[in-house]
């Protein structure tokens, strides 16, 4: 089955492990992912101000492209892209004036084919009918946990994972989130369906520090550390998440966290698609597990090539 999938820049440039594991897992679940042609950056940040309407053009253009290709929904694995696209979808849906203004931009779109140099103009307007789903939602609503359960090939029953939602899957509260902001369960349900133990921990919806890791690295380390510590205190073997920025703060910056908090011994941080693909029997090499700062392979029981192959 074909499915529109929007990867987003980070997944192609930096956290390729999220992108590759998504492809691998979805293949096992029977889906062929199709990326909308000529997709661009989602904008990375939903414009909060009324006046920053141009910021909606990029995400709206992506949705329009999906619509042009006959799609009625698009899934993302990146929590940030999901958030921007979903908020854009809702903003345009609820505000006809906004939709009109954005369509005025979209109409003037010009595309030049890099090879033939052929110019395409006169694009259609975006009608606003494309549903934006995070992959966790797609699994819950369209694939179904029963089906996932039936396709599991590896037993992860001895492992305990802490689902980390972060901000972008749940907030802003209201239509944008995929679950209740303070009482979510979709991630837990997903983990249960792949047969891994689930750890409940009170920091699952706390902020990782976001881009403050650039401007205020110490502060970001501190909040990231509290999340990892809480997961560990509650008995987690790993943290599972869906946002590249959270992954950056919680995994890639563990060096800084360990410098600052000496008692912290580290914690594997995995994308939800990596653990899904692993449970579905995908080979470890494809999952980009070697890209992590804290190597998750030992906890998954991957010690050498031979074992992986089995």
């Amino acid at each position: 089955m074909k499915l529109h999938y929007y990867p987003g820049c980070t997944l192609k440039e930096k956290t390729t492990n999220l992108d590759e594991s998504t492809y691998a897992a979805m293949k096992m679940l029977g889906y062929e992912l199709v990326e909308p042609e000529n997709w661009t950056c989602c904008g990375a940040e939903f414009p909060l101000n009324e006046e920053k309407i141009v910021g909606l053009a990029a995400p709206a253009r992506i949705l329009r492209q999906v619509e042009m290709e006959g799609g009625d929904k698009v899934v993302t694995a990146c929590a940030f892209c999901f958030n921007v696209l979903k908020q854009t979808h809702i903003a345009l849906l609820n505000d006809p004036l906004k939709q009109k203004r954005i369509n005025a931009y979209l109409k003037d779109d010009i595309r030049i084919d890099p090879v033939t140099k052929e110019r395409t103009t006169d694009f259609p307007e975006y009608r606003g009918d494309v549903q934006v789903l995070h992959l966790l939602e797609f699994i819950q609503k369209e694939i179904g946990y029963e089906k996932v359960r039936s396709l599991i090939r590896r037993d992860l029953g001895n492992l305990r994972a802490a689902p980390y939602y972060g901000c972008r899957l749940l907030r802003p509260k209201g239509e944008t989130g995929i679950d209740e902001p303070d009482d979510p369960s979709i991630f837990e349900e997903f983990l249960e369906s792949i047969g891994i133990g689930v750890v409940d921990f009170p920091f699952k919806q706390e902020c990782c520090g976001s881009y403050l890791s650039v401007s205020l690295p110490d502060a970001a380390s501190e909040v990231s550390y509290r999340i990892l510590r809480s997961a560990k205190l509650n008995g987690a073997d790993m943290v599972v998440l869906s946002c590249p920025l959270c992954y950056y703060n919680l995994d890639r910056r563990q060096d800084r966290i360990r410098e600052k908090f000496l008692e912290f011994t580290g914690m594997p941080v995995l994308f939800f698609t990596q653990i899904l693909a692993w449970a579905l029997g995908v080979e470890a090499e494809i999952l980009g597990l070697d890209q992590h700062f804290f190597d998750p392979r030992p906890v998954l029981g991957i010690t050498d090539k031979a074992e992986v192959a089995s």
Partner: peptide, 8 residues
């Protein structure tokens, strides 16, 4: 249970 932020 309505107060998830207090642990329900």
């Amino acid at each position: 249970n309505h107060l998830g932020e207090f642990g329900g």
